[in-house]
Design a binder for these strands. Sequence first.
RNA 1: CAGGUCGGUCGGGCGAUCGCGGUCCUGCGUUGUCGGGACCGAGGAAAGUCCGCACUCCACAGAGCACGGCGUCGGAUAGCACCCGGGGCGGGGAACCCUCCGUGAGGAGCUAACCUGCCGGAAGAGGGCCACAGAAACAAACAGCCAACCCCCCCGCCGCUCAAGCGGCACCUCCCCCACAUUGGGAGAGGCUGGGUGGGGUGGGUGAUGGUGAAAAGGUGGUGUAAAAGACCACCGGCAUCCGUAGUAAUACGGAUGGCCAGGUAACCCCCGCCGGGAGCAAGACCAAGCAGGGACGAAGCCAUCUGCGGAUGGCGGGAGGCGGCUCGUCUUCAUAUGCGCUCUCUCAUGCGAUGAGAGAGCCAGUCCCGGGUAGGUUGCAUCGAGCGGCGCGGCGACGCGCCGCCCAGAGAGAUGAUCGCACAGGCGAGGCAACUCGCCAGACAGAAUGCGGCUUAUAGACCGGCCUGAGGU
RNA 2: GCCACCGUAGCACAGCUGGCAGUGCAGACGAUUCGUAAUCGUCAGGUCAUGGGUUCAAAUCCCAUCGGUGGCU
Length: 121
Amino acid sequence: MQKRFRLARSEDFKRVRRSGKSYAHPLVVLIALKSNQARIRVGVAAGRTVGTAVIRNRAKRLLREAMRILLSDIAPATDDASGWDLILIARPGLASASLQDTRLALTNLLRRAHILSPVHE
RNA sequence: CAGGUCGGUCGGGCGAUCGCGGUCCUGCGUUGUCGGGACCGAGGAAAGUCCGCACUCCACAGAGCACGGCGUCGGAUAGCACCCGGGGCGGGGAACCCUCCGUGAGGAGCUAACCUGCCGGAAGAGGGCCACAGAAACAAACAGCCAACCCCCCCGCCGCUCAAGCGGCACCUCCCCCACAUUGGGAGAGGCUGGGUGGGGUGGGUGAUGGUGAAAAGGUGGUGUAAAAGACCACCGGCAUCCGUAGUAAUACGGAUGGCCAGGUAACCCCCGCCGGGAGCAAGACCAAGCAGGGACGAAGCCAUCUGCGGAUGGCGGGAGGCGGCUCGUCUUCAUAUGCGCUCUCUCAUGCGAUGAGAGAGCCAGUCCCGGGUAGGUUGCAUCGAGCGGCGCGGCGACGCGCCGCCCAGAGAGAUGAUCGCACAGGCGAGGCAACUCGCCAGACAGAAUGCGGCUUAUAGACCGGCCUGAGGU
RNA sequence: GCCACCGUAGCACAGCUGGCAGUGCAGACGAUUCGUAAUCGUCAGGUCAUGGGUUCAAAUCCCAUCGGUGGCU
């Protein structure tokens, strides 16, 4: 996932976490907020309860890789002036899941947030 | 070969596709949150933060105190307490042999290499503590033992627990009998001085005898004494000093001399010696914008039109600043409020203040300059270093020296991942005498964040080597 | 990056100037009651986080490790 699709600034994180809408899954939590920019930006987080540094990094890599695959599906649909800012928070157990499980979890969450249309795929 | 033990190296490999971070180069009618290419891209512990430094800022005349750390000897190093090599004391340590226990299977001990803990001072000063038990925990007291003196009691010695009582045996004096040269034998009566294994007291001596305890203080045997004691002697043990030998030294061995006392605890205070200023890359430096704050300059009028008389619009003029061809022009911007506004002064209501009323004066907009801290960006910081690799030399080693070659991660919500294939090892199951074949499973611990050295902790496994013990062969 | 504190019975905590491991609640049994609660009595329950060391003796003192909590920048 390239840098331009990433949510990086600390204030952006605060804004999305405060006023965004959250969707939970046993493996991941999604927080979504409509932005005024054309592209979609994604931030990834893993707290201390997930595990040690190795486990946290693996969880974040899994989320980024799964999001990279899904990004090509939803990117052309949002070519108007309203994109999304998303935060993905890893939960304990994600590091032992496979990429397939992670992608299915993310697809579920994005459909519930109406970012990925149910007609797609 | 088997067992034990120690050290070192590696710690998943190759290939394909998709993807990520950095550096350099490069493309464009499209300069982009664009595309392309080359190269590089986690560890032995990157971890814990237990020590030591580099580096940066702050503080600082010098010395000392307080506080903290360290403390056998020598070495290594930029530096380091746990690095290297020695020394002393203690603990652990397989099989065989040996010893002990066991009918026996077996168990315990001894022990090599090796592992491991501790290390200034209690015979240099002082203080504290040592539960329970015990007379007493360090310095004497208490009980005990001992002779002397005083008072009371008793009376030969031996036995019956004892001095009284009983029995036996003996001494002295007197008397009787027998024998006789003399010594003597038998029976009976009495027993002073003094003595006592008795009781009490006084002032002394004595030291380890006192069931205890982790610890009472050199051990054994003897001499000695009123009783005793290293008081003295022999042997043994330990300590200190000196000398000799070995060693740089700690120390070891041997000899001589000394005095036998000095309980333990300094990971209790303490004393002696040495070391230490504080904070930490979120240190620190720089940059543009805005904010708090500080400073400088500083206008408030006139006219016209409309009017529902509250005002509105326009023009001239004015302020601050920028630019230019700088007595000027142009551009940007601001204000023009008789307002329940603010401040100050004076007068009245009362002596003052508050409050109220009245009168007067001043302020308000804006522009420019300086500008702390925070957030943001750049840097510190990513090739020049206590750097890495190879070879040689010196050293037992930690390590050092010389030559050659190399440049080797650098993010900032934080880059290494996913899928597949191939061999190589691992475990489980099935088949098979075995070699082997097939199927399934899982890839150890773990992720840089300024850098470096040491330590500690986690770690599936693979490979190599040293030492010791035992067995066999040559 | 730096620093401090804590770990003791099922739970919450004392004890940490070294010598007995304790308190409250919870648990079991008994008494009281027609029965329950309350109350009273008795009992059980401990690798003092782990491993070394100092000491005659360690929950306590020293060192290392593991886990947890909190703070500063």
